[in-house]
Amino acid sequence: MDLENYTNVNIFKKVYEKREVSSIHNVVEQPHHLLKDNTQHAKGGFNPYVNNQGTTVAIAGKDFVLVAADTRISQGFNILSRDYSRTTKLTDQCVITSGGMVADIETLHKLLIAKVKTYQRQFKKTPTVESLAQLLGNTLYGRRFMPYYAFNLLCGIDQNGQGSVYGYDAIGSWDKLTYGVQGSGSELGAPILDNQFVGHNYLVKTLPDDVSVVEDTGKDIINSIAERDIYTGDQVEIVIVDKNGIRVKREPIRRD
């Protein structure tokens, strides 16, 4: 090796050149965080997280899946927006809905849309909900050491035409559910959902299975949460996924 290669700049160059050719997995981004300024933070260290709250509910039916979410985003006690949509369409048969940090939610949703497109180009077909469920799990776990601050529900129609909901924690553990609730009102919403869709505490209970009944129940649940949770309110956004595609509607709820 000649002496020129021992200057800092050349060592950088050499490593990055080598890494780029060695493997697709070894892609190295701009080393902005290696700059001294970026490593020195105020007391408490580097904190990239803020919780913008919000609640989302998803219910799987026989041949449809319904999402009811509020549209409020907050920072502390301040309301930043009253018409933020926390649900994103991934395919014609699948949507993702999330609560948590808006920046992370948007990044994650955009990343998933890109991954769906890549999948479509690569395999010449649209990914199924089951595939997307595993994909989202792996995407979240890929950030195990700096997680997305997003709590997700993946909702869609599976290959048999049945509605399905997949629930996640922030680092990618997931399970198939019949209904789920995520976000700031999850503690308030979960017992109502259990009561309405499993029939806990009832001796006889006819469970709702018609779209319009489920829709009303979903709206009621978000409405009830908005009565007791300061981070939930403004509007309820209803997204219905069925074999005809995706429908969205909004209704105002309390704005205080």
Binding site: V27, H33, G44, G45, F46, Y49, G142, F145, M146, P147
Partner: peptide
Amino acid sequence: FCFKLAPGQDQIGFMRSLKEKAPKL
């Protein structure tokens, strides 16, 4: 696998203080 790390030197410190930084996470 290619796990994204937190920027800066103190990765372990970052992971340890996640509980205060992002409650519920």
